[in-house]
Design a protein around this nucleic acid. Sequence first.
DNA 1: CTGTTAGCGCGTTCAA
DNA 2: TTGAACGCGCTAACAG
Lengths: 330, 330
Amino acid sequence: MGKITIQEVAQAAGVSKATLSRFLNQNYSHMSEKTRQRIAETVKAMDYRPSRRAQSLKTNHSRLIGIMIADISNVYVSLLLKGITSYLKTRDYQTLIMESGNSLEQEQQQLNQMLDQSVEGIILQPNSRKSSDYDFIAAATVPLVLIDRETWPPQWDTIVTNNFHASYLLGQQAQWSLKPYTMGLVVSENIHAVSTREQRLAGFIEGVAPLNVETLELQDIATLGDRVVELVEQKEHPLIFANNGQVLAAILQIVQTLTLKIPIDVGVAGYDDWNWAGLVSPGISTIEQHPDKIGYLASQTLVKLIQSPDQSEVARIHSYPATIKLRSSI
Amino acid sequence: MGKITIQEVAQAAGVSKATLSRFLNQNYSHMSEKTRQRIAETVKAMDYRPSRRAQSLKTNHSRLIGIMIADISNVYVSLLLKGITSYLKTRDYQTLIMESGNSLEQEQQQLNQMLDQSVEGIILQPNSRKSSDYDFIAAATVPLVLIDRETWPPQWDTIVTNNFHASYLLGQQAQWSLKPYTMGLVVSENIHAVSTREQRLAGFIEGVAPLNVETLELQDIATLGDRVVELVEQKEHPLIFANNGQVLAAILQIVQTLTLKIPIDVGVAGYDDWNWAGLVSPGISTIEQHPDKIGYLASQTLVKLIQSPDQSEVARIHSYPATIKLRSSI
DNA sequence: CTGTTAGCGCGTTCAA
DNA sequence: TTGAACGCGCTAACAG
């Protein structure tokens, strides 16, 4: 609510709004040196700043970018945001950040609110796997870049981790274990909801082949604990694989509660968003993503799209390599 | 860029903009049932949504709230944001989130950008300790609520953790150690930069009294490690206290590298933003804050302020209690 | 019950 | 070199 308007400043400087506007937009070409000086002084003195919403109404440039993520308290996401904002800051864009809470309905509703606020582009961690669910964004001629998850068929530029390959490589490590594994146990949240989780599972399965792989959706800690106990009692030697950082934390908690030895009783590995798993005894082998890089790349891509919307004809999937940290847990 | 305007919809429905506007604002009182139906249909058919920036230009309500935090990748902050957005969502506010990077200059610049975007209120984790540094926000008649850190003299509503008291209580626990501590060692980032850190230090000092307390600013891991080694070699038994989660992580890493035993060689405790320290052997005693609650409270306070700006006469400092988790590390 | 009109704060012709 | 006048999309008097 910068109370003071261009009109008042113009009056104070003894010129018209038009002249002042030219000054603000660096149109000095048609202006005497004297008036320019005078305007500069009054603007500074009155500490005047033009209103973006009025500007944008005229120019159609809000300098607002919408960011829609699933869960803002997720560590992966916060690093993602770091990367995004660090780039957009340099380009003088502001970020309208919203959270879908993993609900498609909320997501759609809030995406619409973003459009209402006239964002110039959107970065989205999608809850839906159908590309067409986001057609309405294109209809509003707002560029869209997806992040962390893919939709089908390919229609939007997308930046993801090389989930399949990284999980594959980690799975391969099971071969070098001193005490051979008898099976894999992949623990994940609701696995078919998003492409990312499926790809991690698929990569792992292929990596540990020909080992049998069991999949366990993480409902509550107790059920997971029970299953692990069962397996150990059956003399299995499972390699437990966590599909994300939260799941990894849960697994470690269970293993500790049950006082199982890693990697003697069970092997443990997985995706680590915290970069903390190295501190947990005996050092957990993990896959580290680089969300900051992904965020940076996504915002770069988006800004390019904003500046030349014609390029958006071909959707490119860019997959960013994860880093595998081998420690003593497998 | 919702290309389609109220004008076009009005035309399609065979009414004037004014009538359509009344419909959009639920002013059905003066409207025939027939036209109302007709308008409803066309609006739905054309999937029309009014532009917020045009609306706001007229009504002075952008429904935008500015959130300015120091470091978005910080876990504490991400939970803070969770609390903030979860409340604002219910009140139909959108959040413009920016990051100061712990730089006062950037902070001031970006706060101005927020005002340019006509935010209706601001939640700020301040980099400055001087209340007057934020006078320009009041000058723009935009309500302001501070979070996590205090400024002096009291001038803005503020929500913080009860840092002094929580640290005091934790310090007291040193008395019950089996092997008596000979000193305290507080590790912190740049300690006098923000009120929060000073208060944690002060509380701890009073808590462990009459023990002597040494303060160490965390520059790099190596220096910290060297100092710890020195102390142990001098037969000291220090209680190391981490001023925040990042510092705690660093300390644990060092202790592990040096293969020191907790709590035999050193005691370790501190603020834990991750809620992970319970997993690290032998269980680290920590102070857990409740950033989500703080964020929720702050946004509630702000919305109240927006709705009745007169209340802002008295600045209230609200201090929210932390939870102390005693484990085996001290 | 509905349309006409006048701005909100700014950028941009078109004349002067 | 400058200013008057119009319009961006919308809301809100004021008429009718």
